[in-house]
Computed example of a mutant assay.
Amino acid sequence: MQAAAGTAIINPAVLAKLAEYSNEFAAAMPFPHVVIDDFLEPAFAQALLDAFPAFERGNFIGDGGEPGGKSTLAKVRSLGPAYQQLDDAIQNRAFLDAIGRVTGIDGLIYDPWYLGGGTHENRNGMSLDAHVDFNYHPSERWHRRLNLIVYLNHEWDQAWGGCLELFRDPHVDGRASRLVSPAFNRCVIFETSERSWHGFDPIRLPEKQADMTRRSVALYFYTKDRPAEETAGRHTTFYVNRQLSERFTEGHALTRGDLAEIKQLLEQRDAHIRMLYADNTALRAAQDSGLTGHLLYLAKRAFVRFRR
């Protein structure tokens, strides 16, 4: 009975095809992933959408302290019965083992704090640059292994953007290897590794739909161990700023939309540079504080004087 409760939220048609999805996951390019339509029981997926939190209820304050176009909420159990059922299910061994069958990863661990996960909502104009995720749980000694995203958008045209992008290497090729439109009850499961570059392209809604938002539920899973050849030193999320579109070639006449895109790219790069400078300043402040900082200062002073 308890095992059944763990998979009760999943569409039975999906459970019947786990072996097929496993083959798709292993063979997918540019890194292991699978796209599963109608992933959840239809009524349950609708219940999640009906109880989706208002934008202002989540964390929508950006790094600069100003309101932004993205809102997230990690305390999913506060959202009512549907999200409580979701939380109960995804920590159940039967659910974790089902996802393990698809991905070939045993011993999956759910994150009870939803760090970085939970409900995600993005407004018109938002995008997400290509990145690889942090590779260890921030507070536990767990390896991050999988992202599972369920989209909750009934009306969405791929031409509106907001599509999940999977990249081979955004440093070399700014074009995504695969685009996945965020359609209602569509689930994407992908391996998180040092090469799982992903993001989503800019949301550009028509005027009549400009008040719509891109909604999803993001779930992250971990394991206690990871194969040595896949293990890297602990790091935070690595971002690569979006490259200029290939349509910007010699002789191209700039449109108003082109100028807006160039301005946005420059703003994103400036924000990235400011973030790096802030991180560097904070690191130096931490190094300079306390006994360790004083000893480091004396060592640097001695080194400089010795060189002279």
Rank of each mutant, 00 (worst) to 15 (best):
Y83W: 15
K75Y: 11
F60S: 00
D87A: 15
Q85I: 08
G80T: 04
A82N: 10
Y83H: 14
L73T: 06
N92F: 08
G62C: 07
G68Y: 02
P67N: 05
Q85M: 11
D63C: 08
G64S: 12
G68S: 14
D63Y: 14
P67W: 01
A74M: 11
A74W: 02
Q85F: 07
D88H: 08
G68F: 04
Q84S: 14
I90A: 05
A74D: 05
T72H: 08
S78W: 06
S78N: 14
I61D: 00
L79R: 09
S71V: 02
L73D: 01
V76W: 01
A74C: 06
P81N: 05
Q91H: 13
V76T: 13
Q84F: 09
G65Q: 04
A89S: 15
Q85Y: 06
G69E: 09
R77H: 09
A74Y: 04
Q91K: 14
S78T: 15
L86A: 04
R77K: 13
G68W: 02
V76P: 01
I90Y: 07
D88G: 05
D87F: 14
G80K: 02
N92T: 06
G68N: 12
N92E: 09
I90N: 04
L86Q: 04
L86G: 02
L79Y: 06
Y83A: 10
